[in-house]
């Protein structure tokens, strides 16, 4: 369980760091072909986790330039490590962060941005001082969904991480293991735990969104 939480937390932090710029670009870029990026970001929603996991495994494996470069620097390969798992998780949960972020960014009244620009404030600072504070709701949603989604992921982990106790054996894998070895007691205990944790996270988020911060619009 602890490993799952660690993976989910790390994934969420990485998604916050790379998801905000990606969402910003999708919303504010004038490029015509940005639908392409949107589609790529959304791919994990429809792709079987095994397919995604397979490609990640190939991409970070010893046969790819990225995998070789990493192995040269770190001294060991990425597959079947926590870092490898993290990369796969980030890709897998990307749409769960980027979509709520971009939806919320796009809903900020464009005239507020123009007002800010005419007041001499740069586009980047306008984003920081106006768009981000007005997108708190979407940011929370994205963070929670990424966290919960990573907590429960299975296929990608199995493909990329394997099943190494303490390194890559996450909650969902351990449930699978337990069922395989007919240890239903252990499986039901862990399942119930995951169910409760996920439920509590989601309920508190939705409750928070209802009461707090109703964004004023005119």
């Amino acid at each position: 369980m602890w490993l799952s939480v660690r993976l989910a937390t790390a994934t969420t932090v990485v998604l916050l760091v790379i998801g905000i710029p990606i969402a910003y670009w999708i919303v504010f870029s004038p490029r015509r072909w940005k639908f392409l990026v949107e589609a790529i970001v959304a791919l994990p929603l429809v792709l079987p986790p095994t397919v995604l996991g397979f490609y990640v495994l190939i991409a970070i494996g010893p046969l790819s330039p990225i995998g070789r470069l990493y192995a040269r620097i770190a001294g060991h390969g990425l597959p079947f490590t926590f870092q490898g798992l993290l990369i796969a998780s980030v890709l897998y949960s990307l749409p769960f962060a980027v979509q709520p972020f971009s939806t919320e960014f796009a809903s900020v009244d464009r005239r507020l941005l123009e007002a800010s620009w005419t007041l001499g404030v740069s586009r980047a600072d306008t984003f920081r001082r106006v768009v981000l504070p007005l997108s708190v709701r979407g940011l929370i949603t994205g963070i929670v969904l990424s966290f919960a989604h990573t907590l429960g992921e299975f296929g990608v982990v199995l493909m990329v991480g394997g099943n190494l106790p303490g390194t890559t054996r996450t909650v969902s894998i351990s449930i699978y293991d337990a069922v395989q070895s007919l240890d239903y007691r252990s499986a039901s205990r862990t399942s119930l735990l995951l169910l409760i944790v996920s439920f509590v996270i989601l309920t508190s988020t939705y409750a928070l969104q209802r009461s707090a911060w109703v964004k004023p619009r005119h």
């Binding site: 507020l112 123009e114 007002a115 620009w117 005419t118 001499g120 007005l134 619009r217 005119h218």
Partner: peptide, 17 residues
């Protein structure tokens, strides 16, 4: 617009909420 040093007031008051 940032470098033009102009003030703009729009039809709807676009105050930062």
């Amino acid at each position: 617009p940032q470098q033009r040093r102009i003030g703009v007031v729009f039809q709807e008051a676009t105050l930062f909420p």
